[in-house]
């Protein structure tokens, strides 16, 4: 076997092992959700707030600019087909079905995901998780599951905010700058965006939120308990979330179209 084949098979096996371990971790978390929801609801709410608040500003700013760029690019492309009046519909479809969930997930991973991973990693490195075990408190229920749930619940809310502000950005550019008629913008949007499109967006935000939160808590929880280990866990959170989200995006889209 040549070296690169061996490297490749090694990498592939590593990836499969990680995938398996993550899946088992996920099943464990899911089996604990009902208990945590009932007994530690306050913690879950705090984590929704935490994850949401961390990412809110960058989601809003990014949404606005993505929306404005869509306004410019959309207008430019559509005008080549004499279809500028469809700008509202095209922007809404792009945002709801693709850009909203995907970009929000990437931003979430970069902001909240890294914070969660490093926080949990630090807790592991400084024996806080073991200390909880010794105080007869299950650290997975106390620390991990609330953060996981908080992320899953915060993501669709963030996506909705991203989409709302994005559409506003498109509207501002399309209507005020490029001169698309305001009434046409909205009526086209209403006429062409179906319930199924909205559902696709919601499904994606839930799945991406789940993946981003899962990878953040997994990387933090399993990190090597040292400063370097925590750093690496943080990086891996962003990278693996980005790759997973883009792959899943393709799979979900192809399944729903």
């Amino acid at each position: 076997m040549t070296d690169w084949v061996r490297d490749l098979s090694f990498t592939a096996r590593g990836a499969l092992t990680t995938l398996g371990a993550t899946t088992l971790f996920l099943l464990d978390l899911v089996s604990r959700i009902p208990r945590v929801f009932v007994r530690r609801f306050g913690l879950v709410v705090a984590q929704i707030y935490n994850a949401g608040a961390l990412s809110l500003t960058i989601v809003m700013v990014s949404g606005f600019f993505v929306g404005m760029v869509l306004g410019l690019q959309g207008f430019d492309s559509l005008s080549r087909f004499d279809a500028e009046e469809s700008l509202g519909a095209v922007a809404a479809l792009s945002l709801f079905k693709e850009l909203g969930p995907v970009i929000t997930a990437l931003l979430f991973a970069g902001r909240a995901g890294t914070a969660i991973a490093s926080e949990i990693g630090l807790m592991r490195a400084t024996d806080q998780l073991v200390a909880m075990e010794m105080m007869a408190v299950d650290p997975v229920n106390r620390v991990i599951v609330p953060r996981f749930l908080g992320g899953i619940i915060a993501m669709p809310l963030l996506v909705a905010i991203f989409n709302g502000i994005g559409i506003t950005g498109t509207y501002l550019v399309g209507v005020s700058v490029m001169g698309v008629d305001s009434g046409v913008f909205w009526s086209q949007l209403h006429a062409n965006v179906d319930f199924a499109d909205v559902v696709e967006g919601i499904v994606k935000s839930l799945v991406f939120g789940g993946v981003a939160s899962l990878l953040a808590v997994y990387e933090g929880y399993t990190c090597i308990p040292s400063a370097e280990g925590v750093g690496r866990a943080t990086t891996r959170t962003v990278v693996s979330t980005a790759v997973s989200v883009l792959i899943l995006d393709y799979l979900i889209t192809s399944a729903l179209i």
Binding site: L122, D127, Q128, A131
Partner: peptide, 9 residues
């Protein structure tokens, strides 16, 4: 009592 304290940060 943990060797490093292990307080919750």
């Amino acid at each position: 009592l943990f060797q490093q304290g292990a307080l919750l940060t």
